[in-house]
Amino acid sequence: MQHISVTVDGMEYNAEVEPRTLLVHWLRNGIGKVGTVVGCDTSNCGACTVLLDGRSVKSCSVLAVQANGSEVTTIQGLADGNEWHPVQTAFKECHGLQCGYCTPGMVLAAVDLLGENPNPSEAEIREGLEGNLCRCTGYHNIVKSVAYAAELMGGGSK
């Protein structure tokens, strides 16, 4: 077991974990952050995407011990109190989700994308979300959602 100290959604957690524990499993089973979900075992689906020190990562592909000393933002920590993050607002407005299982990862991938490129074209949005699979929407409304989020955040889509 190894000791880790990780700040998740603004709260610091101290825990003893086995080195083999995946970050996503620690989030879900260790500290009850079940908003982050697992969809595959080959890093393809991106459902487990979180922000690690501000950048999107697939939390199934990071060991919990590797997050020691880091800050993690999950879908549960994105809103500011009752104030939705613009990406969350945009996904609702543009019907960017159906079953919602890919949504936590998709939203955080979009947050990361817009952080790097506040003014993405449709092609850039599609490229930025390439690591997140959705089986419900055909991506059409997800792409629209991200473009709309860019507008809400003051960037706007090319």
Binding site: S43, G46, T49, S61, V62, A109, E130, G131, N132
Partner: peptide
């Protein structure tokens, strides 16, 4: 290579 999240790690 891969996708943005994987390229971050």
């Amino acid at each position: 290579v891969a996708d943005p999240a994987i390229r971050h790690r």
